[in-house]
C-alpha cells in the first residue's frame, strides 16, 4: 500500500475513533439528559461516518474491489441521527424532565393560526 495513503488513513481512523470515544464519554460524564444528548448526536455519528469512509479506501487500496457501499451506511447515519435526536428530545420534554420552556407564541396567541386545519401538521409524530 502507498505509505502516504497509509499514514493519512491511520490518522483519520485514530481521530475518528477518538471522537466516537468522546461521544460516549459525554454520555457518561455529563449530568443532565439534554447535555448528554449532544455527545452521541454529533461526535459519535461523525466518528463512525469517518470510519466508514476509511473502510472504503482501505478495501480499495488493499486490493479488494472498490465498493462505495459503506458510504450508504454513512449517509443513513447522518440522515437519521438528527431525527432520532429530535424524537428523544421530544420524549424527554414530554416526561417533563425539565420544566418546558414557554413558547413565545403562547403568550400572544394568533387567532388565525389556532383553528385553521391547514396549519395542522400533516405527518404528526
Amino acid at each position: 500500500m502507498n505509505p502516504v495513503a497509509e499514514v493519512i488513513l491511520s490518522l483519520l481512523l485514530v481521530v475518528s475513533a477518538f471522537f466516537t470515544l468522546v461521544g460516549s464519554l459525554g454520555l457518561v460524564k455529563l449530568s443532565d439528559f439534554f447535555r448528554r444528548l449532544h455527545g452521541p448526536t454529533k461526535a459519535t455519528t461523525m466518528g463512525v461516518g469517518c470510519i466508514l469512509v476509511v473502510s472504503v479506501f482501505y478495501h480499495a487500496l488493499i486490493g479488494n474491489s472498490f465498493h462505495p457501499r459503506e458510504l450508504l451506511v454513512s449517509v443513513l447515519l447522518i440522515v437519521t441521527a438528527p431525527i432520532s435526536a429530535n424524537l428523544l428530545a421530544k420524549a424527554a420534554l414530554s416526561l417533563k424532565l425539565k420544566k418546558r420552556p414557554q413558547c413565545p407564541a403562547d403568550e400572544t396567541p394568533d387567532p388565525e393560526h389556532l383553528d385553521s386545519p391547514a396549519d395542522r401538521r400533516p405527518d404528526e409524530l
Binding site: F34, L37, H38, T41, P82, A85, N86, A89, K90, L93, C103, P104, A105, D110, H113, L114, D119, R121
Partner: peptide, 11 residues
C-alpha cells in the same frame, strides 16, 4: 440540538 417545532410552525 433542535428539540421541538411549535404547533403553528413559527418557532
Amino acid at each position: 440540538v433542535s428539540a421541538e417545532l411549535s404547533d403553528d410552525r413559527k418557532y
